[in-house]
Design a protein around this nucleic acid. Sequence first.
DNA 1: TTTTAATTTTGAAATCATTACAATTTTAAA
DNA 2: TTTAAAATTGTAATGATTTCAAAATTAAAA
Lengths: 142, 142
Amino acid sequence: MDNTQMIKDELIKHNIKPSLIRIKVLEYLKSTKEHPNAEKIFKKLSKDIPTLSITSIYNALKLFVGKGVIKEIMIQEEEIRYDGANERHAHFKCIKCNKLYDLKLKCRSCLEVTDLNKVKILDEHIYLVGICKKCIKKETDL
Amino acid sequence: MDNTQMIKDELIKHNIKPSLIRIKVLEYLKSTKEHPNAEKIFKKLSKDIPTLSITSIYNALKLFVGKGVIKEIMIQEEEIRYDGANERHAHFKCIKCNKLYDLKLKCRSCLEVTDLNKVKILDEHIYLVGICKKCIKKETDL
DNA sequence: TTTTAATTTTGAAATCATTACAATTTTAAA
DNA sequence: TTTAAAATTGTAATGATTTCAAAATTAAAA
């Protein structure tokens, strides 16, 4: 099965009609690890769809988030970024170069919080902030 | 030592001159668990300081965050909330009532992520999203 | 105390990501 | 086809935050 068909199926699975824009947005989100914002996605897709408006990007993204297809990430920035990965993972933001990295979580439940009895958890967000290898190297090289 | 003096000392410790507004902002943040936003803090302090401007609140908050006195929390909302607690803890947001709860973390390092070698961690943010006890009860009572 | 410089506070205007909304276009069913 | 529903578009509005320059306050020096 080709990639576009898989994207379509994922949309249908979530009760979303697979329109061109929606397919392209999800396809892009699945293809990148950089957690783009709406603006970035808009610029990228505009190359192929010249009539595209940024409102359509927001429409698609909001729909996806509501249906649980993608996740919003807000890490001390003015704008929302979007993450199309299905796998549970954490994020790491470097305050020097502002890059956002994915982090693997070691175990299924390596987060132990109390006070959780009788509470229904729907979603989990974990992010660390610090300085990445490259930027540490840059600093020590000075 | 009285409470105001402790607030002053904490500011001085972080190289912040303890002006009236700064003292009041930090005092309020330390006194509440509700993680207020700038607007909320402004409304609260305006009662005592009628000449107050919201820009001063933003100035103080930005300064505090920069000096590490408080933390910003952004949990899928349009605005930033602020947290004056020193203790390491996670957050839980109920999507039904929109309340933000503190969660205790069970152990010093109950978050196990890979890919962290050579990376300098400065800050850690963990939040869960779901439905709180009260709202679950409301639903099942219907 | 006065003078002066530095810091803090203020208020108005600007910014900018996101949303609202109504008009237009596209899709799909009858 | 015809028609209704859904998707897309563009413009304008929203609202939290920031910018910036003027005014007020504070602190230090004389």
